[in-house]
Amino acid sequence: ELIWEQYTVTLQKDSKRGFGIAVSGGRDNPHFENGETSIVISDVLPGGPADGLLQENDRVVMVNGTPMEDVLHSFAVQQLRKSGKVAAIVVKRPRK
Score class of each variant (00 low, 15 high):
residue 9 V to N: 02
residue 27 R to C: 13
residue 25 G to C: 02
residue 30 P to W: 05
residue 38 S to A: 13
residue 55 Q to M: 15
residue 22 A to H: 14
residue 58 D to E: 05
residue 88 A to M: 08
residue 17 R to L: 15
residue 73 H to S: 12
residue 37 T to Q: 05
residue 27 R to E: 10
residue 55 Q to N: 11
residue 16 K to P: 04
residue 22 A to F: 14
residue 37 T to C: 12
residue 47 G to V: 03
residue 49 P to R: 01
residue 43 D to H: 08
residue 56 E to V: 13
residue 57 N to D: 13
residue 93 R to T: 02
residue 14 D to M: 03
residue 24 S to I: 04
residue 9 V to F: 13
residue 40 V to N: 02
residue 70 D to C: 10
residue 28 D to A: 05
residue 56 E to L: 12
residue 37 T to V: 09
residue 20 G to R: 00
residue 6 Q to Y: 08
residue 29 N to V: 07
residue 39 I to N: 00
residue 31 H to S: 07
residue 36 E to C: 10
residue 69 E to C: 11
residue 48 G to A: 05
residue 60 V to S: 01
residue 67 P to Q: 15
residue 67 P to D: 11
residue 84 G to S: 13
residue 12 Q to E: 08
residue 21 I to V: 10
residue 96 K to L: 07
residue 91 V to T: 02
residue 1 E to V: 05
residue 21 I to W: 02
residue 65 G to C: 05
residue 69 E to F: 07
residue 59 R to G: 00
residue 88 A to N: 12
residue 68 M to F: 11
residue 67 P to M: 13
residue 7 Y to T: 13
residue 60 V to L: 10
residue 30 P to A: 05
residue 74 S to D: 09
residue 81 R to N: 11
residue 83 S to F: 06
residue 19 F to L: 13
residue 73 H to A: 11
residue 48 G to I: 00
residue 58 D to C: 03
residue 88 A to G: 11
residue 53 L to T: 07
residue 32 F to K: 12
residue 58 D to K: 03
residue 33 E to M: 14
residue 47 G to R: 05
residue 76 A to V: 06
residue 36 E to T: 11
residue 84 G to V: 09
residue 60 V to H: 00
residue 46 P to I: 10
residue 51 D to F: 09
residue 36 E to Y: 02
residue 64 N to K: 03
residue 89 I to R: 01
residue 64 N to Y: 02
residue 31 H to E: 07
residue 60 V to K: 00
residue 47 G to T: 05
residue 77 V to T: 09
residue 66 T to G: 03
residue 33 E to F: 07
residue 40 V to T: 13
residue 91 V to I: 10
residue 23 V to T: 07
residue 63 V to R: 00
residue 94 P to V: 09
residue 79 Q to D: 04
residue 95 R to S: 11
residue 82 K to E: 15
residue 59 R to L: 07
residue 21 I to M: 13
residue 86 V to I: 10
residue 5 E to D: 08
residue 31 H to L: 11
residue 31 H to T: 09
residue 48 G to Y: 02
residue 44 V to S: 02
residue 83 S to M: 06
residue 19 F to E: 00
residue 69 E to H: 09
residue 52 G to K: 06
residue 85 K to P: 11
residue 95 R to I: 12
residue 40 V to L: 10
residue 52 G to N: 08
residue 89 I to C: 04
residue 40 V to P: 02
residue 65 G to A: 08
residue 85 K to W: 07
residue 90 V to K: 10
residue 25 G to R: 00
residue 83 S to P: 09
residue 57 N to F: 10
residue 9 V to H: 07
residue 67 P to N: 14
residue 87 A to H: 02
residue 85 K to C: 13
residue 66 T to A: 08
residue 25 G to S: 01
residue 11 L to E: 04
residue 15 S to C: 11
residue 25 G to D: 02
residue 49 P to E: 01
residue 50 A to I: 02
residue 67 P to C: 12
residue 41 I to V: 14
residue 96 K to S: 11
residue 7 Y to G: 06
residue 35 G to C: 05
residue 5 E to A: 10
residue 41 I to S: 01
residue 4 W to N: 07
residue 89 I to Y: 02
residue 44 V to F: 00
residue 57 N to A: 10
residue 56 E to Q: 15
residue 36 E to G: 10
residue 37 T to H: 09
residue 59 R to K: 10
residue 13 K to A: 15
residue 92 K to I: 05
residue 27 R to G: 03
residue 52 G to T: 06
residue 84 G to I: 10
residue 96 K to Q: 11
residue 82 K to F: 11
residue 11 L to C: 04
residue 64 N to T: 01
residue 55 Q to T: 08
residue 15 S to N: 09
residue 21 I to N: 03
residue 20 G to N: 02
residue 95 R to H: 08
residue 16 K to M: 13
residue 62 M to C: 10
residue 70 D to I: 00
residue 37 T to Y: 08
residue 76 A to R: 01
residue 31 H to I: 07
residue 81 R to Q: 15
residue 85 K to L: 12
residue 54 L to N: 00
residue 37 T to M: 06
residue 82 K to A: 08
residue 72 L to D: 13
residue 67 P to A: 07
residue 83 S to D: 05
residue 15 S to L: 10
residue 23 V to Y: 06
residue 89 I to Q: 01
residue 73 H to W: 11
residue 10 T to W: 07
residue 38 S to C: 04
residue 42 S to M: 13
residue 66 T to S: 10
residue 82 K to N: 15
residue 11 L to N: 00
residue 33 E to A: 08
residue 61 V to F: 07
residue 30 P to I: 04
residue 80 L to A: 01
residue 71 V to W: 00
residue 49 P to A: 07
residue 89 I to H: 00
residue 19 F to S: 01
residue 88 A to V: 09
residue 87 A to T: 12
residue 2 L to R: 05
residue 54 L to H: 00
residue 61 V to M: 14
residue 15 S to M: 10
residue 55 Q to E: 15
residue 69 E to Q: 14
residue 3 I to S: 06
residue 51 D to A: 13
residue 18 G to R: 06
residue 36 E to W: 00
residue 2 L to D: 14
residue 92 K to V: 06
residue 32 F to H: 13
residue 35 G to M: 10
residue 79 Q to H: 13
residue 12 Q to K: 10
residue 95 R to C: 14
residue 62 M to I: 06
residue 74 S to K: 09
residue 51 D to W: 06
residue 90 V to A: 09
residue 58 D to L: 00
residue 92 K to S: 11
residue 27 R to F: 12
residue 51 D to N: 09
residue 4 W to A: 04
residue 66 T to N: 13
residue 92 K to T: 07
residue 75 F to V: 09
residue 72 L to E: 09
residue 63 V to D: 02
residue 80 L to H: 02
